[in-house]
Write a protein that binds this DNA or RNA. Structure first.
Lengths: 175, 175
DNA sequence: GCGTTCATGTAAAACGTTACATGATTTG
DNA sequence: CAAATCATGTAACGTTTTACATGAACGC
């Protein structure tokens, strides 16, 4: 069910083709929020169009179709966003791996944690650079670019994970 | 495929029954790392046992079976943990909702962000209290309790999300 | 002894991945 | 004109959810 709202959300920000949406799902958006492949995206776009939540607003080269959200789609998206469920759960392989580290031998765990801390540092720096780049190019007073809120969340998440990994290294070394 | 390693990881830390594992998946573990229901857990435990990766070490009241990981299971878990994939993606409805906020009207978005920031503050405090509680009860020099690494990750994640929400509120208010 | 919690299971439906498929347009 | 990329799709398979099901033990 979430996939359709992920798609509606993208299209609420701006019209796009299935191909363009697919690429976005492969970037920060799919990295933190919701990942999907083109094989799931195209059929869902067709269903959304059949239900009148989105519509084709342009056709381009190679059979590409640009979709835009309809008023009905915007209503449903708004309803979903403003009615969050009480409980929620995750399925994140990266975090799962971190949680299971304590089942490894001390040295194996420390090695993986050190590698993770370094990876997080690299990623945080990169996303911070992307954030600043977006800010430089944004016209002042214009709408907050879609990727901007994601990149900010991304670097803060990586930074928090890095600090957690450093804490875990210390705790494990103490034992 | 991840579910089996989540189960092996739990059992590598300590033996448990399907029922106990189910409860853990409903707590922090399922909240951040990997969520599963009993309807998925019990059949997978039976498969793991049939493959010799875990084994029944005790039978209790009401037909409960306590499983422990075998040497073969430990090998496979270690192999999985020490060979992480290059790319990884998430499917997290909570984060998805945050990412799509920018598609709402300014006031709706601000209201949700404020609610989120408060929720994160509450949760962070609670998990921090749980972390300290675990530390108080742990014997010094003993192994790092399984939930300890999770609760630390949890409160740091909530805190980072809270700070991000506060940043987003400021950015949206500026426009 | 009655309601709750413990403890496990199955089957159908929904969702997501992998493998396969096709052809148009652009770039060098 | 060949290779890369753009752009969409289908079908089989695997994973996860929902709905249904059963009975034992515990607390009052």
């Amino acid at each position: 069910m979430s996939l359709r709202y992920a798609l509606l959300g993208h299209l609420a920000y701006e019209a796009a083709s299935g191909y363009e949406l697919t690429k976005r799902f492969e970037q920060e958006f799919g990295h933190y929020a919701w990942y999907a492949r083109h094989t799931q995206i195209y059929p869902e776009l067709n269903r959304l169009a059949a239900e009148g939540l989105i519509e084709v607003v342009a056709e381009g080269a190679r059979g590409s179709r640009t979709y835009a959200i309809t008023a009905e789609g915007r209503d449903q998206l708004r309803h979903w966003l403003t009615n969050p469920p009480q409980e929620q759960h995750a399925r994140n392989e990266g975090v799962l791996r971190l949680f299971l580290l304590s089942s490894l031998e001390k040295e194996d765990a420390l090695e993986l944690l050190r590698a993770k801390a370094e990876e997080c540092e690299r990623e945080a720096k990169q996303l911070r650079a992307i954030s600043e780049e977006i800010d430089r190019h944004a016209e002042p007073g214009g709408k907050l670019p879609f990727g901007r809120i994601a990149s900010e969340f991304g670097w803060r998440s990586y930074e928090a994970t890095r600090e957690w990994a450093l804490w875990a290294i210390k705790r494990i070394e103490e034992t």
